[in-house]
Design a protein around this nucleic acid. Structure first.
Lengths: 232, 232
DNA sequence: ACAGCTTTGTGAACGCGTGCACAACCGTTC
DNA sequence: GAACGGTTGTGCACGCGTTCACAAAGCTGT
């Protein structure tokens, strides 16, 4: 039997919020706050207090009724649950605009995701140094992944190269992929793929803008409202 | 009464998928495909065919039973619904690593989101040219937003400056914000905020890695399985 | 020891999104 | 023009996630 019993599955929606709580709790620690209620945390995160309590209850019963949660201990528990009790090395494929920015962005290393290597297929880019890391040729990928126990790969290539990049990552032994190319990439089961598509985000925003404009114009044609009153 | 009747609300989940369909349909157009079934589109998008049909049904009845959807017309309808029948100017706040990468990334302009300006508070960065756009001082923000009818703003500042950036955007008249700073930013109702936090994405991935590792080790302690069989 | 205030943890109801299954409908062929 | 294979559009049931509401439990002061 394991030291701590087999953990119940945590809902995806909760997993997506735990990092937010973690971030906020960290801020509170720096402020010197040692104790926090679900109501306070909820207001910081901009969500419902019941949701916070239910989310935290998936980790176990780490609160004290009438008091709240001990920040330090909660941070520890969330970190453990998210697998942040050790670093996760990552590799980046593609040393273009985005790849370089990611490599230069200190936030990854700082939060426990050091960059084990950045790779590009273009010989002109190889050996350039970006963000303190030397760009390597693609054929060194498998070796680096194995040597540094990399399990997370980031795709920062152009669209056309994204699927190939994913396949190389999988062949090298990577089991989690963060894809920034605006395309659907497929991977075998057992490999987690998350796609972050900046254009998609923009399009979701413009859909809402579009609706606001439409609603405003409908309103205007009925009541003469100028439709600007909802901003600010 | 409006030319086209008041449109029913489209579920958020569907809105998030429409851009994917749009992308794939565009690819198909270039391939010379003029007609497509929900089954085919679903397989391209990696989702269920019924979901595709239901999603598209929110736009109206634009398919033909027994035949499928006409790609060109569907593209037109999705674009219209997403508000892509005209360009949306965007401003970027923060000309650091990420701001520069975003500015240099051609994808935005190409997909109908031209960059009307990039701004930074640091006088040393002002007047640098990144991605063909001159970095402007922050106090020109309101003027640019007004002059170019900008309704979308991107926050690419450090965490500490993010909330202030959001407030400046709102004051300038922006009603949609895409936030890349790893922090919660609040805005008045009527302003849509979407946060894309790279660390959060990483943490979601490492949670799943963690679980895989845990499952594998439990398995190993029972059956001797080496836990590597699910990759590739 | 107990009353009163506070806050957690969770059962239960609700709402949204997903997927199945099928009727309605299109085009084609005989 | 009727029968048939194909595909859409959608009613329905199910499951997940959110929110409410409250009992259980801790703390404080008398």
């Amino acid at each position: 039997m394991s030291p701590h019993r087999t953990r119940r599955r945590i809902p995806d929606a909760t997993v997506a919020r735990l990092p937010i709580y973690l971030q906020l709790l960290g801020d509170q620690l720096e402020n010197g706050t040692t104790n926090l209620s679900s109501e306070e945390l909820a207001s910081l995160a901009g969500v419902n207090a019941a949701k916070v309590r239910k989310d935290l209850s998936y980790l176990g019963s780490y609160g004290t009724r009438g008091v709240g949660y001990e920040v330090q201990y909660l941070v520890y528990q969330i970190r453990r649950e998210l697998g942040l009790d050790h670093d996760w090395n990552v590799v980046i494929l593609g040393a273009g605009n985005l790849g370089q920015a990611l490599s230069g962005y200190g936030g990854f290393t700082e939060r426990g995701y050091p960059i084990a290597g950045i790779f590009d297929i273009d010989p002109d880019k190889v050996d350039n140094v970006v963000g303190g890391v030397r760009v390597r040729p693609l054929d060194e990928l498998a070796q680096v992944v194995a040597a540094r126990s990399v399990s997370i790969g980031v795709i920062a290539t152009p669209v056309a190269a994204a699927q190939d990049a994913a396949e190389r990552l999988v062949r090298a032994g990577v089991t989690s992929i963060l894809n920034f190319a605006p395309t659907v990439v497929t991977a075998p089961i057992g490999v987690t793929v998350r796609t972050v598509d900046l254009s998609v985000e923009m399009q979701i925003l413009s859909y809402h803008e579009q609706r606001r404009a439409l609603a405003a114009s409908t309103l205007r044609s009925v009541s003469g409202d100028d439709g600007r009153n909802q901003s600010a």
